[in-house]
Design a protein around this nucleic acid. Structure first.
Lengths: 238, 238
DNA sequence: GAGTGGTCTAGACCACACT
DNA sequence: GTGTGGTCTAGACCACTCG
């Protein structure tokens, strides 16, 4: 009998981790192809893929579409309790942020949105869709719903970089309470496409409801993050 | 040619979702075995398993050890900004909470812990490990590190149900600032075992550093949650 | 056009859970 | 003991990316 001992996915994980830790592979570097790894370690693609998925779950590597596997750069530290802007805090962490406006339209609140925002059905809103990333990698898509009633003419402003800055400067409106809601799930087909991830990729959904100083709802922000791109930090003082 | 069209994992997902939505399967119900599903839908176990993993990522079903797949009950809504206790808010949401003390020992801060807590290396601490769940399902493990210096004799108290209550009532100490840190990752072998999940299961890591009113660090809380068991809600007032 | 990741087939063995 | 989930082998085809 030639009885070759089966190669476990755990050993493939160990091997790949060591490559990354040794520095043979740096953040955003591409890993060798699945077939090449399999051949090198004398195993099958299924086992190699299993190992890759484990590392992906740990946030060590990530996938980009059908282009391959890459080493994950540091997570973006995001503190929703600090009044800071994406473009600023990513830069502060030594990475290059980018922001792309995908859509800006006037809509009317449907039943679902109205419920989430606590406004009447049919209330006029401005919907803004953005894609944001760090370096070469898109990290989240967001959908922002703004109440035109409280922010007249907001649809004509440049909102690509920061909505909060416009609200503060152009409307002399300060934020009051913010309600955050976070859940781990997986990406829809359309969101996955935008984030250059396979459908079903593990994601973090953040829903943020912002009020003004008088307690009126200003905006609803729905974010979908690649799970491995985010580290959430919140500071509470009671 | 007999050329049977390949069955896609997407169609298996659709089929299982419909079973759950129709009410054929209720929360915590066990799904049929992988082989049975495969045979019923004329496909292989690999494809069925792929579908099950997709539903797992979405949080629709969960695994328990080697016992099988089950329908996920509602997520526990957890608001760290409210002064509430696990046992209370789970009950409030109509589920039966449980809490089990796994360990309680006196230790000295090692380098890693000292750094996280901002205390000197070697500072005496009380380490408490607990396992908590809802219904029949364990949902998170936690490791609590308490500063004996500020909480003398804390190791002799009953801490199974609520540390915060003891601190408040027995030490007349109020909490001040709380720093939260959240990240999505995967379970270690030991944590997975405690949570009756396979190693590598997707998890949410929550790190909570609590200060007293004077700004002194009181405790460090390290929690590992099953990703599908938690919905985090935070209310911030600026 | 060559090569890659994404997916599916059709088996197999093992360790553990349940009865 | 029986059956289950967990894992691995050894192929195959397709759709897409990249050069």
């Amino acid at each position: 009998m030639t009885a070759r001992k089966a190669v476990t996915s755990a050993s493939v994980v160990t091997y790949l981790r060591s490559c990354i830790n040794k520095g043979d592979l740096n953040p955003d570097d591409k890993l060798p192809s699945e077939r090449e790894i399999s051949e090198r370690l004398q195993t099958t693609r299924v086992t190699t893929r299993e190992a890759l998925k484990q590392l992906e779950a740990q946030g060590v590597i990530y996938r980009s579409n059908r282009r391959g596997w890459f080493v994950t750069p540091d997570r973006i530290k995001y503190d929703p309790s600090r009044a800071m802007f994406f473009m600023d805090y990513v830069a502060e962490q030594g990475q290059q942020p980018f922001s792309r406006e995908l859509q800006k339209t006037k809509i009317k609140a449907d039943a679902e949105i109205a419920l989430m925002m606590g406004v009447p059905i049919g209330e006029p809103l401005v919907e803004l869709q953005r894609l944001r990333g760090s370096g070469v990698r898109p990290v989240y898509v967001e959908r922002i719903l703004l109440r035109e009633k409280l922010l007249p003419g907001i649809d004509k402003k440049d909102l690509e970089n920061s909505v909060s800055r416009v609200i503060r400067n152009d409307y002399q409106t300060e934020y009051g309470r913010i309600d955050l809601d976070m859940v781990v799930g997986s990406l829809s087909v359309t969101d996955a496409e935008l984030l250059q991830a396979p459908a079903g990729y593990t994601s973090i959904t953040i829903q943020r409801l912002s009020y003004d100083a008088k307690g009126e709802v200003l905006e609803l922000d729905l974010e979908q993050w690649r799970h491995d791109a985010l580290q959430l930090k919140v500071s509470l003082s009671s």
